[in-house]
Amino acid sequence: MSMLTPSGMGGKYRVTGNAYPKMRPPRRRGRFVAAMIASVVVLGLFGWGALQLFHVFNGKDSGDTKANAAPQNPTCSPAPVPTHTAKLAPMPQPAGVTMNVFNATPRGGLAKSTADELAKRGFKVNKFGNAPPGYDKKVSQSALIVAGPAGEAAAREAGTQVAGSTVKIDPKRRDKMVDVMIGTAFSTLATPADAAKARIVAANPPPPKPSCSPSAHPATKH
């Protein structure tokens, strides 16, 4: 009988051998991992504190960073000066506007049909035909109204008849004649009701809006 076999036990329950089994305590990995995490946190806090002390002794603090990173306020520059005169001349009635109607598109017949309709609305049509070389097939908008300084008010009146048209003042022109250059975006003349609304806007154009650009806050010294 082995010394490990209790008294009275035998047979298949007999324990043999001459060495005691070694009983090891369970490994505590959880505590080890928690200790490692705590050490890392402590080291991180220590490093952060050291960095703050470095900034303080060098005359910097977190307030400077926040001041520099503050959102920017927009600074508005003055509104652009309009191309027309400061005081707009009163717009004439259609009977007081003499115009030339030119077709600047590849489509045929637009000059005549447009001139006929404008004549029905009371405008005086001097002539119609293809646009001069400087404008032929170079007008992308619905219409370009060209006039000299003396015809600026008449040009605005003519522009009310074509939605999306723009007025161009040629300083070299001395007459009051207005040239209506029909562009590629042209489809039809504005309805009389829409033309009347456009006339109100053209007679009292809104002032141009100022352009705004962001500007940084001045740095605050501590």
Results as ranks from 00 to 15, higher is better:
A158N: 03
K60G: 05
L88E: 02
I169T: 13
V162L: 01
S215W: 13
P149A: 14
A89N: 10
V178D: 00
V81S: 06
P218F: 07
G183Q: 09
N58D: 08
K197L: 04
D61T: 14
H55G: 08
K87R: 15
R14N: 06
D175H: 12
Q141G: 08
V101A: 06
P80M: 09
T5S: 15
I200G: 02
T166R: 11
A147S: 06
K172Q: 07
D116G: 03
G183A: 04
Q72K: 14
R107F: 01
P132Q: 12
K221H: 13
M36K: 12
G151A: 03
G11T: 11
A69V: 03
K12G: 03
P192W: 00
K172E: 01
D61I: 12
G122S: 03
G183F: 04
R24Y: 15
T105A: 07
M99G: 06
H84L: 15
F54N: 09
P210N: 08
P78L: 10
Q141A: 04
G47Y: 08
A35P: 03
S140Y: 03
E117T: 04
P205V: 09
A79Y: 11
A216L: 10
V33H: 08
L110I: 12
K22A: 11
A95M: 06
M23R: 14
S77K: 15
K124D: 01
P149M: 13
V101I: 14
V178R: 00
P21T: 07
V167D: 01
A143D: 04
K60Q: 06
V101C: 01
P82M: 05
M36D: 05
N100Y: 14
F102Q: 12
R156N: 00
P74A: 14
T188R: 15
